[in-house]
Design a protein around this nucleic acid. Sequence first.
DNA 1: ACAAAAGTGTTTTCTATACACCCATGG
DNA 2: CCATGGGTGTATAGAAAACACTTTTGT
Lengths: 224, 224
Amino acid sequence: MKNNIQLTVDAVVFGYDSGNISVLLVKRKFEPFKNAWALPGGFVLEDESLEEAVERELAEETGVKINYLEQLYTFGGIGRDPRGRVVSIAYFGLVKPNAFKLTASTDAKEANWFNIEKLPELAFDHKKILNIAIERLRGKITYEPIGFELLDKKFPFSDLEKLYTTLLNREIDRRNFKKKINSLKVLDELDEKVSVGPGRPASLFGFNKKRYFQLKKEGIIFEI
Amino acid sequence: MKNNIQLTVDAVVFGYDSGNISVLLVKRKFEPFKNAWALPGGFVLEDESLEEAVERELAEETGVKINYLEQLYTFGGIGRDPRGRVVSIAYFGLVKPNAFKLTASTDAKEANWFNIEKLPELAFDHKKILNIAIERLRGKITYEPIGFELLDKKFPFSDLEKLYTTLLNREIDRRNFKKKINSLKVLDELDEKVSVGPGRPASLFGFNKKRYFQLKKEGIIFEI
DNA sequence: ACAAAAGTGTTTTCTATACACCCATGG
DNA sequence: CCATGGGTGTATAGAAAACACTTTTGT
């Protein structure tokens, strides 16, 4: 009954900042695919859960602190790793902009952020995994209020709007969008304004975690 | 880098017949959990894909011919198998009533169908897996026209209606339901009627695969 | 003063829901 | 002839979509 299948985890971690969706990649130090960019990840240890494995690998390889993590899909095709049979459980993660900016500024490291429109060649079948993750992100954001996971604790409403237009790649009517978000009651308007460059200063919003988790539990469909 | 993690697949296969949703279980012949009911499944071989493994195990253990198969979730908790670290990739399957009836009638076998409301104790964490699968089935049927996978090629409209009322556990207005299904244009009305017992004979419907796959590709949301 | 971004309501259209009676057959 | 299940349309309410101007700041 013993098989010789190796088990890995891979993480597709998205970050967002002012109109750019980026994904976290690491440069491979060893063969195969030495020097190619790849999703962070690695072998699962016998005494750790899958989630622990993902978090450990992310910490080791990138130092990025994840904000949201869910299982994406398991890839088990026969020829996907030249070293032999390797099955990989892919995870889908989101980080807040501060984590994002931090690592992004730590240039010249072996980990880096790439705009999802401008990706390098990827090792293994990681391109395929990434595409599935992007699809999931696009899909998920329309029926679950997951977008907040990518924004700062306090954010102007226009950030949220820009996130949706970027991700869905279409214009959104600001008034209708606001109406819909308001109807969910997940946003608390704060007594604080922020002003960046010309234009009227924007109120900052926070999101109401309690209400948010309640909606998630109800499996809310909110169809942007 | 070698780990000692074993990899299995498990299948949650649903069948439907006249108001009953059933799931396919097998009785375990060996320890651990000898004689307990469990999801069909087993170890993945090194030279087969995950889907091949599921289909092989299903054929070996139950003889049931699957009609629809998708990956459900991967379970990798540390203590889930007393034999050691075993990670299981669970699949979600649907069969047509004929396959369903066939095996159901082959009584006294080691494989059997159980109404999802009347389940026995299950081995391992299979109860948890099954619950997640049921959730997925309920959810999926409301936003993807997946229900047809559980019905015969030709079926009276009332079968479809009954499937939905059973699965969603609420009454559905027949006229509104018909309107909604019709608007998807996935049903072709056939020039054939069937009559079972008293009552007006029902027209038979087939479903339009072409249109159906097109909708699936579009990720249609149809919200029953 | 003007350019740039934020903020705000109303009308129209479409979709969802509620609702009840006639039809065709078997017994 | 009656019990059983199949088949059909309309009116109302609610949700989504279309649509443009005013406010506040920086330069």
